[in-house]
Nucleic acid binder design. Structure first.
Length: 412
RNA sequence: GGAGGAGUGGCCCAAUGGUACGGCAAGAGAUUGCUAAUCUCUGACGGUUUAAAAGCCGUCUUGUGGGUUCGAAUCCCACCUCCUCCGCCA
């Protein structure tokens, strides 16, 4: 959520930000509602003040008090209505992009910053991961389809062990940096999901919702971790407060009919290791770069070729102020595919979730939040299978992971 | 799922219809002088002022939302969370 004071004082800045992001919003309507809300509030406060004053007199002027009471009762619903409408409009505004974010309409205008890692040379025609996996019995989407429908998969045999290895490897590497390990609940109350900024009109249909219990399934551990400190006040000395979360993620993939329909690249359920940080405003940009750096370090260590992409204003996630994606080389497709994402959300999520910290001087301030993929496991396994396939049909295990898998190739 | 109990500042706790008691902890300031002590201040929000603050004005704050009342922590209704027991269960 954006600061109403900022909107009041700087409406042009907000309008410009929304325009860049391609959000159609009526800022003037918000300003008008805000003004009328404050007027009503003032009126009601005056009445209440009067009520208190008269309430201490003896004998009680009952007639006047009743009159004031009725007047307040009449105004209160009006105020509530204004507040709710204003809140609704405020929640519909996306975060403002930081200055260095490239302006653009959609993913075509994202900017590739750099490419890292040498593409593997194959002296044979590399196969796609699904062909390899089915032959080695690592992935079964046919039976998953039978029991659950499309966009599900069984992960089997060495692929499962590879997942566990990747998890242990990642936690080993990152816990050194002050991350606290965490496994969050993957079901959230609507107001918490709303607080993360992942319930915009576009995002909403992407979520699974359990009607009977009024709970959303998390699409990423970012959501429950961000909401964890809702309505709480953190201590300045605990910041940055970093979490390394593991969770299963659920996505409806509603808008992606016909896209990546084969295999497990785009599925309704996958596991992911996610970095998250609550930090001070002045350190959030640096924290964001730090997350990107960690992502790259992990990728370099398991030696997968990738490119870093700076996401343009029109393609950023709703709560993001700046976003980088990492795309990993997939030989069978001859192109880079998205495997990681990291965003700094400034105080956008913190305002919605009311997460503040008390500074040394005692002042309350909203924290900034930063999130980033450590590894989306399904897609990483895909990338490993494709990039590490051998001529004889086996798959080599990246050296850094061998210690964790206990074998150096598949079949082992 | 059933029965019972409980939710008051960071923590502990008092108040049964009339200004929310007190203690502990932590932070800031002052004083003394040395491994600390003493004293003072410290809930949130809105408005106003300001370079920023202090200040000033007001409202809100006893799990949440309603209701009764001139007035609710207190009475009524619904919901949430936690605890105990029963049932079920990895």
């Amino acid at each position: 959520m954006l600061d109403i004071k900022l909107i009041r004082e700087n409406p042009e800045l907000i309008k410009e930000g929304c325009r860049k992001r391609g959000a159609r919003v009526d800022i003037d309507r918000i300003l008008d509602l805000d003004k009328r809300k404050r007027e009503l509030m003032h009126k009601i406060e005056q009445l209440r003040s009067k009520q208190k004053e008269l309430g201490s007199q003896t004998p009680l002027p009952l007639k006047k008090l009743k009159q004031i009471k009725n007047e307040i009762k009449k105004l209160e619903p009006l105020l509530k209505e204004k507040e709710e409408k204003l809140q609704e409009l405020l929640l519909s505004l996306p975060n403002l992009p930081l200055e260095d974010v490239p302006e653009g309409k959609d993913e075509k205008e994202n900017v590739v910053l750099r490419r890292e890692g040498d593409l593997k040379r194959f002296d044979f025609k590399p196969k796609d991961y699904l062909t390899i996996s089915e032959k080695l019995d690592l992935i079964d989407v046919k039976r998953a389809g039978k029991i659950s429908g499309t966009r599900f998969g069984f992960l089997k045999k060495e692929a499962v062990l590879l997942e566990f290895a990747l998890i242990k490897f990642t936690f080993d590497r990152l816990l050194k940096y002050g991350f606290s390990p965490i496994i969050p609940p993957v079901m959230l109350k609507p107001e918490m999901m709303e607080g993360t900024g992942h319930l915009s009109e576009k995002d909403r249909k992407e979520k699974y919702f359990i009607e009977k219990d009024q709970l959303y399934l998390a699409g990423t551990a970012e959501q429950p971790i961000a909401a964890m400190y809702a309505n709480e006040i953190l201590k300045e000395k605990d910041l940055p407060l970093r979490y390394l979360g593991f969770s299963t993620c659920f996505r409806r993939e509603a808008g992606s009919y016909g896209k990546d329909t084969k295999g497990i690249f785009r599925v309704h359920q996958f596991d992911k290791i996610e970095m998250f940080s609550f930090c001070k405003p002045e350190e959030s940009k640096q924290e964001h770069e730090f997350f990107l750096n960690l992502q790259e370090r992990l990728m370099k260590e398991i030696d997968l070729p990738y490119q870093v992409v700076k996401i343009c204003t029109g393609d950023m996630g709703f709560p993001a102020a700046r976003q980088y994606d990492i795309e990993t080389w997939i030989p069978s497709e001859g192109r880079y595919r998205e495997t990681h994402s990291t965003s700094v959300c400034t105080d956008f999520q913190a305002r919605r979730l009311n997460i503040r910290y008390r500074s040394k001087t005692g002042k309350l301030n909203f924290v900034h939040t930063v999130n980033g993929t450590a590894f989306a496991i399904g897609r990483t396994i895909i990338a490993i299978i494709e990039n590490y396939q051998q001529k004889d049909g086996t798959i080599k295990i990246p050296e850094a992971l061998q210690k964790y898998t206990g074998f150096s190739q598949i079949p082992s």
